[in-house]
Amino acid sequence: MKFRINGAQVYASTGGREHVDGQPWLIFLHGAGASHLVWSQQSRSFAYGGFNVLALDFPGHNLSEGVPLPSVEKQAEWLKAVMDHIGVATATLVGHSQGGLVSLAMADKYPEKVERIVFVATAAAIPVNEKLIETAETSEPVAKSSMTAWGLGPDAHHFENSVPGFSQVGNGLRTMDLNQEGALPADLKACAAFENGLEIAGRISCPTLCVLAGKDRMTPLKFGKKLAEALPDNRLHVLEHSGHTIPGEAPLELNQFMRDFFNKE
């Protein structure tokens, strides 16, 4: 679906289904340099499974217009505006990587809008290497290639895939190409500047699920575990063989963990 926030077009995948009154809302938030496409194995699955789905493109990413937002806090403000515009009173947020930071910021400032959070391959802080930010600013294709390489685990580097014929390497690179120039460095800087995540995590009152990856080179497992330990009401799953891109690398496992979590709550 397409709508406008602050005058700019916003795109959100509904997972191929119309929203239905009374169904719970599930909002997917992508990571740095990515877009709603990272959730292609989740958005349809949950939309056909009884949820109203919004898999968003942040401003300046893929099909959403506008300028990439410079901070995690501003991304949370934008998310609040999206929810208000559509009339979503409360939703489960599913945040991958940077999307996890946005979920933390959202739960901190607007706890009434957040019913549950699923943190996917993320941490309370993502202190991005300065060299990577510099490369993203001066040579975006090189940074995209490095991030795609670091973002995928060993099976994805062997082109093993649950979707027949797909290359996660190819899709990772080309998906980033669909974003506005400058979106990647803006995201990386926003991640690097977000520093009080651990403190926020300790205050989060809603139920949370952390799904982390054993072969994550972007947000290493030990940092994800710190977040999981800080969350008061958390369930943790570790996918030992996955890399950072869990939604694409281990979609069936992630979807099952989410369903189990939702069914329990």
């Binding site: 093993e160 027949p164 290359s167 190819g170 899709n171």
Partner: peptide, 19 residues
């Protein structure tokens, strides 16, 4: 067939392949 598709996609640098 999917292994073949993924191998050809990889070698060509594509996003996907259909055999």
């Amino acid at each position: 067939v999917a292994v073949l598709e993924q191998r050809v996609a990889a070698m060509e640098g594509g996003v996907a392949c259909t055999a």
